[in-house]
Design a protein around this nucleic acid. Structure first.
Lengths: 197, 197
DNA sequence: AATTTGACATACGGCCCGTATGCGGATATT
DNA sequence: AATATCCGCATACGGGCCGTATGTCAAATT
C-alpha cells in the first residue's frame, strides 16, 4: 500500500473528528472520554494529542467543522432567496431549524461557548453571526433596515434564533412549537424595518 | 456557644455557596476544584457532598441564588416603570446590563446551560424568562403586543438580550457598544407592537 | 443519662487528562 | 541503493479530581 504520510494523517484527523462529534453530541464534552473516543476511531490518545494539542483543541476542530457545514447551508438559502428582506427572514428560520439538531445544540450552543469562550474568538468565527451580519449590512445600505449597528443586530438576531431553537428542542412537541417560534422571530425582525410594511 | 444545628448548617451552606460563586466565576465550573472550594470556606468536601449531593448540585444552588437576585432587580424595575410597553423595554435593557457582570456571564450564561441543561428545567425556573413572559402576557392581553405565543416571545427576547450582553462584555470598549446593543434591542422589540407607534 | 440522630471529616478507589519517552515506517540525503 | 533523519503515533507514567464508604463527635431525643 505505502500511503503518503500527510495523507494518512488527514485520514486520521478525520476519523478523530468524526468520533468526537458522535461522543460529544451523545455524552457532552466533559463526560466524553478521550480513551473511548480514540479507541472508537481505531487510534490512541497519542494521535489525538499530536493532532489537536489537547481536548479543547479537538472540540474546536469539531465546532469548526459543524460551523462550516451550517455556513454552507445558510449560503445556499441566502443565494436562493436573494439578499433581500425575505432572505434574512428565511435565514433566521433556517438557523432555528438547524439548531434543532442535537449535535448542533450540544456541541455548538452549549459546550462550545462554555469551553471555548465567546464565539467571536473561535477559529471558525461563528458562521451564523457572520452570515447574518453581512445580510443586515446589505439591507441597511439599501435603506430597508434602520441604520443600526450591523453587528449588534446580528448578535441579537442570532441570539434570539438560537435561544428559540433551544426552547423548541426542549419541548415535548417540537413540531407544535416550532411555528410559534418562527412566527415570533418574524415579528421581532419587522421591528428592524425602516418603514412599516 | 452551642449553636443550633440547623443554624450552623445554613451558615455553612451559605459559606459554600459564596465560595463556589467566587471559584466558578473566576475559574469556570470545570476548572474549579471542590477541595480548594471547600477549604476556602473552612470546610471539607464532606460538607459539600452532604449539602448539595454533588458538584452539579452546588452549581444549581449558586445559579438559583444569582437568578433570584436578578429576578428581584427586574421586579424592581418593572414595578417602577409600570407594566406597560416602556417597562418591558427597560427590563430588557436591565437584563443586558446585569449580564455584564462576569459572575452572571460565566455561571448563568455559559456553564449553567452546559452543565444543567435547558434553563426551563432549572430549579429556579430562570427568572429572566419568567419575568419577561409575564410582562409579555400582560401586554398581549392589553392588545399592545401582537397575539403571539408569550413564551416564544419571551424566549426570543431573553435570548437576544443575553447574547447582546455576551457581545458587549467580550468587546474591548464595553461602554461604547452597550448603547448600540440597547438601541438594537429596542428596535427589534418594536416589531412586536400590534400597531406602529 | 443513655441513645439516637445528623452534620461533617477522613480514607479509599477509579477515572481521566497531560507529558515524556519509545518505536517503526516514510522521507530525505549522498 | 544504503544510510540517516524525521514524523506520526503508541506506550508508560504521574498527578489531580470526583464520588462513595466509613468514622466521629456534638446536638437532639427519650
Amino acid at each position: 500500500m505505502a500511503k503518503r504520510r500527510s495523507e494518512t494523517k488527514e485520514e486520521n484527523r478525520g476519523k478523530l473528528i468524526a468520533a468526537a462529534r458522535k461522543a460529544f453530541a451523545e455524552k457532552g464534552y466533559s463526560a466524553a472520554s478521550m480513551d473511548e473516543l480514540t479507541a472508537e476511531a481505531g487510534l490512541t490518545r497519542g494521535a489525538l494529542y499530536h493532532n489537536f494539542g489537547d481536548k479543547r483543541g479537538l472540540l474546536a476542530a469539531v465546532v469548526e467543522q459543524i460551523d462550516t457545514e451550517m455556513a454552507a447551508r445558510a449560503q445556499q438559502i441566502g443565494a436562493r432567496r436573494g439578499n433581500d428582506w425575505l432572505g434574512l427572514l428565511a435565514e433566521g428560520a433556517a438557523y432555528i431549524e438547524m439548531a434543532l439538531d442535537p449535535e448542533v445544540q450540544r456541541i455548538v450552543l452549549l459546550d462550545g461557548p462554555a469551553v471555548l469562550g465567546d464565539p467571536s474568538k473561535w477559529p471558525s468565527q461563528n458562521s451564523c453571526l457572520q452570515v447574518t451580519k453581512r445580510a443586515v449590512d446589505g439591507l441597511i445600505a439599501q435603506g430597508i433596515v434602520k441604520p443600526l449597528d450591523a453587528e449588534a443586530v446580528a448578535r441579537l438576531l442570532s441570539g434570539a434564533a438560537l435561544n428559540a431553537a433551544l426552547w423548541v428542542a426542549a419541548s415535548e412537541n417540537a413540531h407544535d412549537v416550532l411555528p410559534k417560534a418562527v412566527e415570533a422571530f418574524r415579528s421581532l425582525a419587522t421591528g428592524l424595518l425602516a418603514e412599516p410594511l
